[in-house]
Every structure is written in structure tokens, then in C-alpha cells.
Design a protein around this nucleic acid. Structure first.
Lengths: 345, 345
DNA sequence: CACCTCAATGCAATCGATTACAGCTGAGTT
DNA sequence: AACTCAGCTGTAATCGATTGCATTGAGGTG
């Protein structure tokens, strides 16, 4: 269906295809008169470059691939939006793939993107270990940046937030609100995000003397359902601690809901925190206290790294960057505001 | 970076590129011995087809483009997921674009997809009128299916739900719950979805003798913020009717929240309904009564239509299909269950 | 006027896979 | 033994845009 080719434009303008190409891609010198003729002809015919042909010749597609674990997770969705926006400024397009949280599908997507000659890939890996072969292989062939999560033992650029610092803020806040015991509800430790967040949680809990019972660290997946199930389990096994620290907002929303369903008032009896600051965390009842990720900034950095990597080419694959941004705590109604300062020793 | 070419495989296997191509694409006869040699060589070298080169030659990319008005709207997100799944079964990939609700961006996306030789396009147009030129032009060049929304005056395939029938169910349900007056909160009438839903709303309201004050039809956009703003306006201008019928779930969630903020109990004092059945409608407090769209089915039909259109080619661009599926009402807590049957004349 | 310079333009190769057509081989036929 | 034919395999053209190199011609110089 792609009808008009450069040859037809050339014929109509009475010049060679080379000249047309030079005019249209603004490379090389062309006299003003000829340029006008060519543009005229191109407009008349409604010419549009064939991106495929150009890509074959240039081995550049001005397209970046992105693979996320789940396109239905609002956090990734808004990350995608930010990335697309950042790319738009550079005149690049985004090719988005959903890995459905399955490293095998993810591997297929990555291979497919590579085969399509995308200029670079942004991936938030589905699994901290099983995603390794595909991610590493892909990174060996073209510029790749990991976003948010990362795969253990890979050497690629990475952009994300400082989970440990974030959890420190969360724990301090809960502590000020009077929490003296807490549970952690996350996905599996094979997700770097849960792993890091848990590490930060545990460390600060110890420092603040907040009790964390071994069986109150519950690991499932990033979903509302798991948040609900986890709370049900806690309730069944002896009740809730002062605070539920969740590894993402979906879990926290489910947890909050389950708390109320089981008759626990949030935040009066249990405080709940999330992570990501998705739009719905604001709308929940009570509105969720959570950690806001600077998505636009993350996206911008990722795009910048990709661009840099594309330029450097194979030449000097310099050391890879690990950019970690500092997230901010967003306090809402699911936690208690600092009351009379809790007694400290 | 795409290193291994068919020529290298050919050399290694001691055959011509033609033979390699025949083996790898399973076309044409090749002796078993040669086939083995070729496969061996291909594996050894880690050969992978260059999709770009193939696309240039075949003018088929096994890729379908999809354009949605907003990737952060959970309804579209899950629609995308369904489409990707349906395409996966046919060995096709999805190229997703976000139009940011702007017909101009949408036009660029469509052009870009066409230039990339996608095999077909699935689009949920951003605007019922302004999207026309781009959509129609694109549809003239390649198979195109409109999803959910459609552009006035275009002749392309379309798949969606029967909004009028859905609103009929909604209104009947509200009426049984005792509603005798209602407001409608939608996006602009330039979105076919709002237009259709409003038409269904108005018609059934008349039939059931439900009062709809002229200034209680509020039009904004599909967002939580608008839902909140609309309710604020209603409250300021004289109070709420018995029911708030919203054109989508985002609006309804915002509306619900605003009702409570203004001290109106849902559903006791005001009933609220949404449309789409996004995941969060279940989680809201109270859980939202809404219209469930059969997303998988919609996606499957769209993919089927595209495939059919690709086959038919220019030859017999037969009449276009308009497939409308019947959605189902999902009753939750934001509306009252039918009580003592309301008095009927 | 012969010759040189340099900008503008054209020619043709190139990217990698596919495929129409031609050529080859060997088994089967007469 | 000559011939036919089917089945493989190779040669080369093709998809459309880009670009190194060659060519052209205008303008300048001695």
C-alpha cells in the first residue's frame, strides 16, 4: 500500500533519486531551485518515507523498545507514559511489550525487539534471576537500560530509586505515628524491588526497635489480590501488628481493603503504607500513604543513557551507570500523623 | 549489531543464500541433507532473521499497530492486554501508541504506523470529529479497525459494546433502587462513547419517568478529577439528584469520592454508577456498580477482522463490519439493591 | 584561451532476505 | 543410448532509501 517511492518523486521533479534523498533528509548540498522542485513534487504525490527501507540501509530505526512486567500495573503504565514523552522530544518512537511477568515471554519480546533493530531497549525485568540470560544477551547486542527493577549480576545501565532510603522514611514516619511492630507484604525476593525494599525495611526496623515477627514477612506478587490474601493470613494467624508495610500500592490497596473487611480500622488500629504513588492510592479510602517515584525524571535519565550509549557504540563501552534517584514520602490518611512524640530511651 | 546474515550461514553451510532462505522460511523444497547442514550452520552462528530486511522485501511485518487515547486509563490498558494476547496467538506483535487524547498526536501516530508498514491498525479514536481525516486516510491505505469509540462518518470496521442497551440496564437497576431523578456526568459529546451512553441514558430516563434537569448533564473528560469537579458543581448549584450516572469508572470514582467529601452517603443518599469495570471499581469504597465490557471478546473480534481484511486486500473491500457486543451490569455497593418494589402507576 | 576549482548532481552499490527463473543431476522411459 | 522430467540448487533481480565516487559545468585565474 506504500505507494509513492522516492523514484516517483525523482521522476516528477526531473532529478535523480539521490537528489531527492538529499533534499528530504537534509544532508548534502542542493541548490535552492532544485530543492523547491523536489519538495513540490513530494508534496504533490504525498510522499512519505518508507521507514523500513531507511532502517535497512541505516540500521537505525529511531525506535526504542520497552518491556514491562505488566502493562496493567498503573505504576508501569505511567512510567511508560513518561518514557514515551521523553522519547518524543528526541523524535523517537516507543515499541511497547508486556512480559506478563513471565521471563520466557520476556525473552521472546527482547529477541523480537532486537530483531527489529530498535535503537535501544528499556526493560524492567520480570525476575531477578531468571531474566538474566535474555537481558544480558540483549545488552551485549545493543544499548539497554534497566528501569526500576534490575537483574542480579548483569552489567548494564540502570535507573531507579533508592529503595533503602525510601523505606527509611517510611519506617521513621510509622514510628513517629506510634508503630512498635510491623509486617512486610511484598512480592517474591526474586524481584529486586521487593528485595531492596525489604532490606531497607528490616534495617530501619531494627534501628528503631520495631518488632518484626519472622512469620509476618509475607511474599506473594504485586497484586491487589495478594494484599488481601496476606492480611487474611495475618489475621488468621494471630492478628495484625501496628503497621503493614507493603512493597507496592496494589498490595497496599488490597491490604487496606482486607483490614477493613476484617474489622480493623485504618489507620487507628493498623497503619498501612504503599510504594509507587499510583493515582488510585490517592483515591482509596483512606487515602494511602506511599512513596512517590519521580517517574518523569527516571524516564528522562533512561532516555539520556540510551542516547549516550548509542553514540559511544561498541567503541568504548564505558563503565555502566547506576542512577538512583531519591523518592519522597507522601503522607496521607492510611497512617497516623505524628502524635505526642513517642517516648524514646 | 545484527551481525549474522543469511550470507554467512550460506557460506558456512556451503550452499547459496537462496537455499538458506528456503530452509529457514520453510518454503520450497530442499533435500533433507542440505536442510540439516543449513540448520546446523544457522544454530552455530546464532542466526536470527533481520525482520527489517524481510519486511522490506515482503511488505509484511507481522506487526499490528494500536493507538489509544490514554495509556493511563486502566480500561484501555486492559484492552491493550487483551489485544496483545489475541495477537500473540497469531504470531503477531503489537506496536502501541498513546495519543494523549490529542487528535494531532493521534494523526502523527497513525502516519508513523503506516510508514512502518504495520499489517493493520487498531484504534480507539480520541475525538469523534477531529480524528476523522487521519483515521479515514489511514483506513484507505491499510486494514483498520476502530475499537470502543468511533469517528463520525468513517467507514471502517468497528467493534465495541451496545452502549444504549447497557444504559438501559443501568437505568432499570437505579430505578428499582428507588431513583426518581438522575444526573449524567460524561466527557464531551465529541466522544462517541459519551454520546451513545448519554443517548441510552436519556431515552430510558424518559421511559422510566426519571427526572433529568438540563443543568444536570455535565460534560468534561474521562478523569477522576472531572468526576470530583462535576459533583462539586452539582452540590454548589442546588444539590444532588437520586443518582449519578457516569460515563466511565474514572469519573464515577471521582464522583463517589466527592460525594462523601461533601457529606453525601453513597448509596444511601446518592447512587453512583460507572462504566467499563476497571479493576479499581471493585476496590473503591463503596465498591462501584458498573458496566462490564467483554474485553477479551472485543479484542478477539478486532484481531479477527484485521486478519480478514488483510486477506481480502484491495480486491473486494467488502462492506465493513460493525460488531457490537452486549455488556453486562455488575452490581456492587454504590447502588441500592432493589427494595420494596417502588410503586408503579 | 587553456586550465583549475568547487559546488551540484547523477550513477550505482549497498543494506539483508526473498523468489522467479534457469541450470543441473540423476532416475526412469522407450 | 538418447531423452524426459522431476526435484534441487544457484543466479540475479527486487524491495526503497542512502551515499561514496564520478561527472558536469559554471566561474575564476594566469
Amino acid at each position: 500500500m506504500q505507494r509513492v517511492t522516492i523514484a516517483q518523486v525523482a521522476e516528477r521533479a526531473g532529478v535523480s533519486t539521490a537528489t531527492v534523498s538529499r533534499v528530504l533528509s537534509r544532508r548534502g548540498k542542493v541548490s535552492a531551485a532544485v530543492e523547491r522542485k523536489v519538495r513540490r513534487a513530494a508534496d504533490d504525490l504525498g510522499y512519505q518515507v518508507n521507514v523500513i527501507a531507511r532502517a535497512l540501509r541505516n540500521s537505525r530505526t529511531d525506535t526504542v523498545g520497552m518491556v514491562v512486567p505488566s502493562i496493567t500495573n498503573p505504576f508501569f503504565t505511567s512510567l511508560v507514559e513518561s518514557v514515551e514523552h521523553a522519547l518524543g522530544k528526541e523524535g523517537k518512537e516507543l515499541f511497547l511489550c508486556d512480559a506478563r511477568s513471565d521471563p520466557r515471554i520476556e525473552a521472546r519480546r527482547l529477541a523480537s525487539l532486537a530483531a527489529r533493530n530498535v535503537d535501544g531497549i528499556i526493560v524492567s525485568p520480570s525476575h531477578g534471576v531468571d531474566s538474566r540470560p535474555a537481558v544480558q544477551q540483549t545488552a551485549d547486542r545493543l544499548p539497554l537500560v534497566q528501569l526500576d527493577r534490575f537483574v542480579d549480576g548483569t552489567t548494564t545501565d540502570w535507573v531507579g530509586v533508592d529503595d533503602v532510603a525510601a523505606m527509611r522514611q517510611v519506617m521513621d514516619h510509622l514510628h513517629e505515628g506510634g508503630a512498635r511492630s510491623a509486617a512486610f507484604i511484598g512480592s517474591l525476593m526474586t524481584h529486586s524491588s521487593t528485595e531492596q525494599r525489604f532490606a531497607g525495611f528490616r534495617r530501619r526496623a531494627e534501628e528503631l526497635n520495631i518488632e518484626v515477627k519472622p512469620d509476618q514477612v509475607l511474599l506473594g506478587d504485586y497484586s491487589v489480590e495478594w494484599g488481601e490474601a496476606a492480611v487474611a493470613r495475618l489475621v488468621a494467624e494471630g492478628g495484625l501488628p501496628d503497621a503493614l508495610v507493603c512493597a507496592d500500592d496494589l498490595i497496599a490497596l488490597g491490604a487496606t481493603r482486607a483490614c477493613r473487611a476484617h474489622g480493623f480500622a485504618v489507620p487507628r488500629q493498623v497503619q498501612v503504607t504503599g510504594y509507587d504513588d499510583i493515582e488510585f492510592s490517592r483515591l482509596a479510602e483512606p487515602a494511602l500513604t506511599t512513596v512517590h517515584q519521580p517517574r518523569d525524571r527516571i524516564a528522562a535519565e533512561a532516555v539520556r543513557l540510551l542516547a549516550a550509549a548509542s553514540l559511544a557504540k561498541d567503541a568504548e563501552r564505558g563503565p555502566h551507570a547506576r542512577i538512583s534517584l531519591v523518592p519522597t514520602l507522601v503522607v496521607r490518611d492510611s497512617t497516623r500523623a505524628a502524635q505526642t512524640p513517642p517516648d524514646r530511651i
